[in-house]
Design a binder for these strands. Structure first.
Lengths: 139, 139
DNA sequence: CTTGACTTTGTACCTAAGTACAGGGAGGAT
DNA sequence: ATCCTCCCTGTACTTAGGTACAAAGTCAAG
């Protein structure tokens, strides 16, 4: 009686129906049992798992990483905590690297726009363009 | 005599040969003239343009945006500077938003790992997993 | 003249995370 | 019995920026 149809599970977990089927195919959720007619029957645990997937994605994990995360957390040995921790620390490092790259890009772009605003009255050529075009400055 | 073959232009601008053809198809570089046999003939300006594209990509511009940038800079009216400036300012905003998102993700992940390291001796369940799985905390 | 390195075109494949659609079956209300 | 809505499968398409490959033509050296 607690069985949910695909549209129900999709709605409860705020994803598209196709996404549910896609997660099943990617083996991120277990293969659900079926009615005699072939309809999938989901449980509230499936809803929780999909929400877990979505929250993990927001934290920057890919579906493959999430699959790993799930298998670690399903495996209830005492060591699992260690592995997940390592995963997360690594992910934090990756995010930090991304932030650094973006900061650098931002700085470059800001420098260029400052130059551009400053020298506008001279010849009409934007320093952003000329700096990108000509001067083989960084290689 | 200054004509460059595709492999030469690719090497000089540090991209794959296929990438050069791809940029031509995407109209990021002008259609080069051909020899009677159909071989493309490039110039040093093409090398500069490809380098421009690559540098712009590093600054976070997409190929479509770069195409715009090129058409603005080719159009030598006095207003071009203004447009490029606006483009860049907008891009800076986008980058800032991205950085903010990443900072937030990083903070969440850090909080979780701190909790995880702290409470490791209790029951072996990692707080990262349990916090993602159960507690419908944010929605 | 043959070999090897290069070029041409067109098409298909790649990652990531889905979305869309076609063609068919099922369930329940009228 | 019919209608509407839902579900099934399988396949193709999407974005972005390329990469890879096959079959064929070209060029220069030996």
């Amino acid at each position: 009686m607690t069985g949910l149809k695909i549209s129900e599970v999709a709605e409860k977990s705020n994803v598209n129906i196709e996404t549910v089927r896609y997660y099943e195919k990617r083996q991120l959720i277990p293969e659900p049992p079926r009615t005699r007619a072939g309809y999938r029957i989901f449980s509230l645990e499936d809803v929780d798992r999909i929400k877990f997937i979505k929250r993990s994605q927001e934290l920057g994990f890919t579906l493959n990483e999430i699959k790993q995360l799930i298998s670690i957390s399903d495996d209830k040995t005492q060591v699992n905590s260690e592995e997940v921790l390592q995963y997360s620390v690594q992910k934090i490092d990756e995010i930090e690297a991304q932030i650094k790259d973006l900061e650098k890009i931002k700085k470059t772009l800001q420098d260029l726009t400052v130059q551009c605003s400053g020298s506008r009255s001279s010849d009409g050529r934007c320093p952003i363009i000329t700096s990108l075009t000509g001067g083989d400055s960084h290689e």
